Amino acid sequence: WKITIYDQENFQGKRMEFTSSCPNVSERSFDNVRSLKVESGAWIGYEHTSFCGQQFILERGEYPRWDAWSGSNAYHIERLMSFRPICSA
Rank of each mutant, 00 (worst) to 15 (best):
E9G: 03
S26H: 12
N10V: 02
E9R: 04
D31N: 12
E62F: 14
P85R: 06
E62L: 10
R34Y: 03
A74Q: 11
K37C: 06
D7E: 11
V33R: 00
T19L: 07
I5M: 04
R65T: 15
G53V: 05
P85Y: 02
Y46F: 13
A74G: 14
E47F: 00
G45A: 12
N24H: 02
Y46N: 02
S21A: 11
S72G: 13
Q54C: 06
G45Q: 00
Q55D: 13
E47L: 02
F51Y: 15
S21F: 05
H76M: 12
V25N: 04
E17N: 06
Q8K: 10
G45S: 02
C87G: 12
P23S: 10
T49L: 05
K37F: 05
K2T: 04
P23T: 09
H76C: 11
I5H: 01
E39L: 12
W69P: 06
E47M: 03
T19A: 08
M16A: 11
F11N: 02
R15D: 07
N10K: 09
M16N: 05
S35R: 01
L36F: 11
M16S: 08
L80R: 03
T19P: 01
E62T: 07
F56Y: 09
P23I: 07
Y75F: 12
D31Q: 09
P64F: 03
E27R: 07
Y46S: 01
H48Q: 12
Q12A: 10
E59G: 10
R28K: 09
R34M: 06
N73S: 12
N73H: 12
R15H: 15
R34D: 03
W66Q: 12
F30S: 02
F30V: 07
Y46Q: 00
I5L: 09
E9Q: 09
R28M: 10
L80A: 04
S20Y: 07
E78P: 13
N73Q: 14
T4H: 14
E17M: 09
S26I: 13
R60L: 12
A74N: 13
H48Y: 08
I44N: 06
V25F: 04
F18M: 07
G61I: 03
S26F: 10
V38P: 00
Y6C: 01
W66D: 05
C22M: 06
F18S: 04
V38K: 01
G71Q: 14
F51E: 02
P85K: 05
G45W: 02
E47C: 04
A74E: 14
V33Y: 02
E78W: 08
A89C: 07
F56Q: 12
G45H: 03
E17L: 07
S40P: 04
F83D: 03
W43S: 01
